[in-house]
Nucleic acid binder design. Structure first.
Lengths: 211, 211
DNA sequence: GCCTAAACAGACCAAACGGTCCGGAAATAT
DNA sequence: ATATTTCCGGACCGTTTGGTCTGTTTAGGC
């Protein structure tokens, strides 16, 4: 058994992801995916019971990949400094670099794509979306709580709201990047977000030393 | 002539807008709109030639309404202060109040809804989206350029990027608000954005005096 | 080498969907 | 009052779309 089933399954997921990011979930038609990937209906419905089944698999995979990138970047930042504030600044800057290195297929978030068609999905999918965003918040919030303890902010702030700010900036930047056809948006706006953190915790202005 | 055609036309636009914000453009089916609004096919296609025709009308109306709210808020801010920096802070705070007063139907931006299905639309619609976001940037950028002249920023900044920051935060907050089912998101994140501006231009921390 | 099950191809189907058409009511112009 | 035009109801139509079904190929297990 197992000819190369997982390979085509991944191809389907990749193709579907591309189309969802361009056309939205409802706009992504199965026939279009078949043509895009170069397979037939039989193959598709062998791997996925329904379109909604694909939607969930797509979302789970995206959330997992995202969590991994996130964890790696975080680990890298924590290796480069012991100070939570510096870790956070490095973390943000690593994301900036990531997006500045990108081009053409303007970044977009599959989660956001789902959110704007939220009522199409069942409770399980909506719950998954909620939990994914909640996890991002929790991880960053934890870090900001450490930061606040060691570095008195110039203004009283909520670690949770600061944590959400990162995601908010990213998601918002993706939208503007697509609408304005400008891939630099994500990196620029993350830099602005970092600037906010630096001002808030009174980090002395320094030239860009990293990388 | 003119029984009450414009009234039903508006009803259709309102209903379609609601559905687009919940289901996305492709997810918004005409039959569903008919049921939601309480009319028939004949009525719909009397007012709109095609679904795409509706999409454009919807977008134009939304952009116009948005521009109006924007202009009114700006005028109000300019009436309350002569200093461009204070005007900007008041402007942001007025938006905060607007969103803090909202409840249930979590705010969402029709433009963003379109952006995540961008490839569905023709060049005209894409151009309209681009121009609308460009207008927002231009108006805020103009203000930030005045601000920078009168108030030296603690860090070198780009007025255009600062202007985009406002839209970015709004759009991003809408997404998180929907996903997390938390209507307070928009107001909170705008407050954070305002905090950034205050820190950047060294505004002394003051209690909330306005309104 | 043969059996079994996964991995696909592709015709087929029912429902949904966007759009058309025509008849009739309702309002206005003359 | 009557003609005319806007406005709308609702049956109808062709295509698209998600999904099914049957048959065929391919890759291991023994």
């Amino acid at each position: 058994m197992r000819k190369d089933g997982i390979a085509t399954r991944e191809k389907i997921l990749d193709g579907a992801r591309d189309l969802v990011l361009r056309l939205g979930y409802s706009g992504m038609k199965i026939d279009h995916v078949l043509e895009h990937v170069g397979i037939t209906k039989g193959a598709f419905f062998h791997h996925f019971k329904t379109k909604e089944d694909l939607a969930k698999a797509l979302l789970r995979r995206y959330a997992d990949q995202d969590a991994q990138i996130y964890a790696e970047t975080r680990a890298q930042a924590e290796k480069l400094s012991d100070d939570p504030l510096q870790q956070m600044l490095i973390f943000i800057r690593l994301f900036e670099d990531m997006f500045n290195g990108m081009t053409e297929p303007y970044p977009g978030c599959l989660l956001a794509s789902y959110v704007y068609e939220l009522q199409q999905f069942d409770d399980e999918t909506r719950g998954l979306l909620h939990d994914t965003f909640a996890r991002w918040r929790a991880l960053l919030q934890e870090k900001f709580e450490l930061i606040v303890k060691q570095h008195p902010p110039k203004t009283p702030v909520s670690p949770a709201q600061l944590a959400d700010g990162f995601t908010v900036v990213l998601e918002g930047a993706f939208i503007l990047a697509k609408a304005m056809n400008d891939a630099r948006m994500a990196g620029e706006q993350l830099r602005l977000y970092r600037n906010h953190i630096e001002l808030l915790f009174d980090v002395p202005a320094q030239g860009r030393a990293a990388a």
